[in-house]
């Protein structure tokens, strides 16, 4: 099994074999981060550009550490706005970057599809580090690695995603990945934040959180993206927390050995109670550790064998 694709744009077209390859490779990379010298020379001479159009501390840092542990040169470009506002099109940005001859471009963008436009214009490998409300494939891969690590397998598990499903790229990538790996996925959130036709992605919809959590092996809380909603979408943060905050009593609805996940950064007291976030069933920090391993694996699989 080899990873033959040029880009990592999303999990919508990832096969089971490809997901397993990434997760297996990431397992091997996890060990490197436990060494005294946390660096291998593998990608010496490879240039990775981290192009972040949207503020992000953890994904950005995770990609940077991953590149550096593989001895690649990581160049970071952060801009809070698109170059559109500077009168430059995305195509201009693409050509400018190409002229600097990087090998891999990691892009985070507030607009769905921006990485796809870059991928079409450029010969370099593009890794989608989150595009609008579309996909966040590396997050879903690290989530799956964490589930596999804690539960031994993904197949047959009941995974519940709770929050703003409509605006969540983490939810979309996880829906693709988890259903493909044989998990039973339930999405739960306020009715107006469940996107139309989402059942078509092979998931069950439940707007009542108590019901959604029944028999759950994994509870994945999503960040409530109040900043991404236009106008009066949901009455208030307080009302949201009343219905969808993962509290200790709420967690009792899930299986006794259910694990609690969150892509971060967490809104304590809004979608997750502090006691749960810091509790023994929380694997939130394992997710962070696995994030570096998954990103190292992807950089390695994309950069290797390029000739």
């Amino acid at each position: 099994m080899e990873l033959t694709r040029k880009d990592i744009l999303g999990l919508s077209d990832f096969s089971v074999d490809e997901i397993n390859l990434v997760l297996d490779t990431a397992e091997s990379f996890r060990e490197i981060s436990t060494r005294t010298i946390k660096k291998v020379p593998t990608l010496r001479g490879i240039t990775v550009i981290n192009l972040f159009y949207e503020a992000s501390t953890r994904t950005h840092t995770s990609f940077e550490i991953a590149a550096k542990r593989l001895s690649a040169d990581a160049i970071n470009i952060s801009t809070s706005t698109s170059s559109v506002t500077k009168g430059e099109t995305l195509a201009d940005t693409a050509k400018t970057l190409e002229a600097m001859s990087p090998d891999i471009i990691v892009i985070r963008h507030a607009c769905a599809g921006a990485p796809h436009i870059l991928a079409r214009l450029l010969g370099q490998s593009i890794i989608n580090a989150g595009d609008g409300s579309h996909e966040h494939p590396t997050q879903a891969l690290l989530d799956m690695l964490t589930i596999r690590q804690k539960k031994g397998t993904i197949e047959g598990l009941k995974v519940v995603l709770v929050g703003d499903i409509m605006n969540s790229r983490v939810a979309r990538s996880n829906m693709y990945g988890l259903t493909r790996m044989g998990a039973r996925v339930t999405v739960c959130g306020p009715a107006m934040l469940i996107p139309r036709g989402v059942e078509g992605m092979g998931v069950t919809v439940e707007t009542n959180m108590q019901k959604a959590l029944q028999d759950a092996d994994v509870v994945m809380m999503l960040r409530m993206q109040f900043e991404r909603q236009q106008g009066a979408v949901f009455p208030s943060v307080r009302e949201y927390a009343r219905l969808f905050c993962l509290t200790v009593p709420m967690l009792k609805e899930a299986k006794e050995d259910a694990i609690v996940m969150h892509p971060g950064p967490i809104n304590r007291g809004i979608e997750i109670a502090p006691e749960v976030a810091d509790g023994f069933r929380s694997v939130i920090l394992d997710q962070v550790t696995n994030g570096v391993a998954v990103r190292m694996a992807l950089l390695y699989l994309l950069a290797g064998g390029r000739q």
């Binding site: 579309h134 139309r196 078509g200 236009q230």
Partner: peptide, 20 residues
């Protein structure tokens, strides 16, 4: 307002805001 494409399964998959 804010919509970019037809609202339906495809917009849900693409993560683009829908126009119903």
């Amino acid at each position: 307002e804010g919509g970019a494409m037809n609202e339906g399964f495809v917009s849900t998959e693409l993560g683009l805001p829908g126009i119903p």
